[in-house]
Simulated scan of single mutants.
Amino acid sequence: MKLIQFSAGQGPSECALAVKLGVRRFIEDAEKLGLRVDIVEQEAGEIKGTFKSVLLMLKTDDVNTAQQQCLEQWQGSIQWICRSPYRPKHGRKNWFFNVVLWESDESQPLNTSDVEIKTCRSSGAGGQHVNTTDSAVQLLHKPTGLSVKVQTERSQHQNKRLAFALLNHKIKALESQQSEALKGNLRLQHHQVERGQAVRVFEGERFRERS
Rank of each mutant, 00 (worst) to 15 (best):
D62P: 07
C70Y: 08
R121P: 03
E205D: 15
Q69L: 10
Q73D: 15
L146I: 07
L110C: 04
I4E: 09
L21G: 07
L166M: 11
Q156P: 02
V37A: 06
T50G: 05
H141A: 00
T112P: 08
H169T: 11
H141P: 02
Q158T: 08
R83L: 06
K149Q: 14
V40H: 04
G145P: 02
Q68I: 11
L167Q: 01
A163I: 04
K183M: 10
Q151W: 01
H141E: 05
D29C: 06
C120E: 13
A173W: 13
A198S: 06
S113D: 14
P109M: 04
K142D: 06
E46Q: 13
G49K: 02
T133N: 07
Q128W: 10
F97K: 00
E31V: 13
A136N: 02
E43R: 08
L35I: 14
K142I: 09
K160F: 08
E205C: 11
R24F: 15
Q178D: 05
E103C: 07
Q128G: 07
I81H: 05
Q189R: 10
L110P: 00
Q138C: 10
S155P: 04
F97C: 00
S135K: 05
S77D: 05
N64C: 08
R154W: 05
F96D: 03
K32Q: 15
S104A: 14
Q178N: 10
F6L: 04
G124W: 03
V40A: 12
Q178T: 03
K93M: 13
K142E: 09
K52G: 08
Q192R: 10
D62K: 12
L21F: 10
H129R: 11
F96N: 00
R200V: 02
F96K: 02
A173R: 14
L139I: 02
